[in-house]
Design a binder for these strands. Structure first.
Lengths: 236, 236
DNA sequence: AGACATTTTTTGACATATCAGATCGACTCC
DNA sequence: GGAGTCGATCTGATATGTCAAAAAATGTCT
């Protein structure tokens, strides 16, 4: 009776604290709430979030593995600087991984998979029509994740997630700028689905290549004036 | 005086304990000294190595991120099972990443880079001639790492490292079997260098594709009887 | 005043302690 | 006899404490 079982079960055990801390810090970094170069003390962050140093430390480890923070032993932890080189590298890596995913998915897709992909694209059409950028963004993520599932490449999701961290900071800036290429994305997704339909691995790979054209993306990013302000000067 | 400064702990600060623990555990897993499914208790491993649980836990986190161990919260940590699906996925991912690296390296390589690559290949020829499998293996690693450096893609190295973990366990088995394709590897490396020389990104990518032909590699792995014994049965 | 040595403080690396969930076996009740 | 239950115990998750290295502040000598 004393235990609340059905009241507002916050599920204190459902999701580990370290995971929550990780996501929270990651969001703070990606949203540029914590600017590049900011010093992060384990103790301070811990007390700010309201947990002990341990989960914060574990989150720091994971974040440093995906390059979002830099841990200088016995000295301090800092939010990683944004460099064009790093952004470009991550764009290339994501493209490479997703091309492989698309190719493999084209080989493995079932009829049901195809239908699901088509539905995802349709829902993206709706979201774009409704001007719901957030939903569109999530559906885009779902689309790529669905491809990874079809390809039976779960690790690819993890790798892409890691690599996207570096890009997200600058992408967020561009998105908030009002720019959107929803209609173009939908067409590109349709091209990928079409390749899936014909089980054409090379076509799927090529369509994904076009979808994640890193050169063009990078050019757009570079042009964005908001990004310029947040990027680290070349001399470093 | 009571503190031993020069006794056994040569450089207590040189390399972090958690890093050493990580490498040690990783080696134990990859060498199959710790077989898939083995239960790893933080406490036991800690006392076995002679450190506290904290660095062990940090090592566990990193190892679980690259899929070598599986942490079941509040229950236990286990050495991950080897599955053909996972091995094949990791082969594909590595190939995809390294193809991108090769393409970018072909675009960026300087004359000095080219010379260094050629020297690396020559040293591989010597190692192969001397039958020094270990040196050959290390030079192979150096070759791929050099490509990543030329391409200015440091994250690629990390990703490949993570992905290789899953493959290393079965590759180790094949290597110990006496099989080696040193001469073939050298030829493939030469093809990559040739593409570098002509700054031909697509040729470099294709050469790397041939070098890391995952279908063929996977077929060889599957055939290997030693591997069969260590892989997890499909039903699981 | 400026460069160097010292100390003081901050910080993360690591150790230890505590807590709560998961497991498994013994026991009970049907 | 078997299914369900309860709890002893093991385990990882988290909190707290300790310590040494690095950076910053201070003092000192030239």
């Amino acid at each position: 009776m004393s235990k609340n079982v059905s009241d507002a079960p916050l599920r204190p055990s459902e999701v580990p604290v370290s995971q929550r801390v990780y996501e929270q810090i990651r969001e703070s970094i990606i949203s540029l709430e914590w600017k590049p170069g900011t010093k992060l003390s384990e103790k301070d962050v811990a007390s700010e979030i309201g947990v002990s140093k341990t989960p914060v430390r574990e989150a720091f480890i994971r974040l440093s593995e995906e390059g979002l923070i830099e841990i200088r032993p016995k000295s301090g932890s800092y939010v990683s600087e944004i460099s064009f080189e790093k952004v470009y590298e991550c764009l290339m890596l994501r493209r490479a991984i997703e091309m492989a995913v698309a190719a493999e998915a084209a080989n493995r897709r079932t009829t049901l998979d195809l239908v699901n992909l088509q539905q995802l694209v349709e829902r993206q059409v709706e979201a774009a029509g409704a001007g719901d950028g957030v939903a569109f963004f999530e559906l885009d993520r779902d689309f790529h994740q669905a491809l990874a599932n079809i390809a039976a490449m779960p690790s690819a999701i993890r790798l892409v997630h890691m690599v996207r961290g570096a890009v997200s900071r600058v992408q967020r800036l561009r998105i908030s700028r009002g720019e959107n290429r929803h209609l173009q994305v939908i067409e590109e997704h349709r091209a990928i689905v079409a390749a899936m339909e014909s089980r054409d691995a090379s076509a799927a790979s090529a369509a994904m290549d076009a979808h994640l054209n890193c050169v063009e993306m990078f050019a757009k990013i570079i042009r964005s004036p908001e990004v310029q302000e947040h990027v680290t000067p070349k001399a470093s």
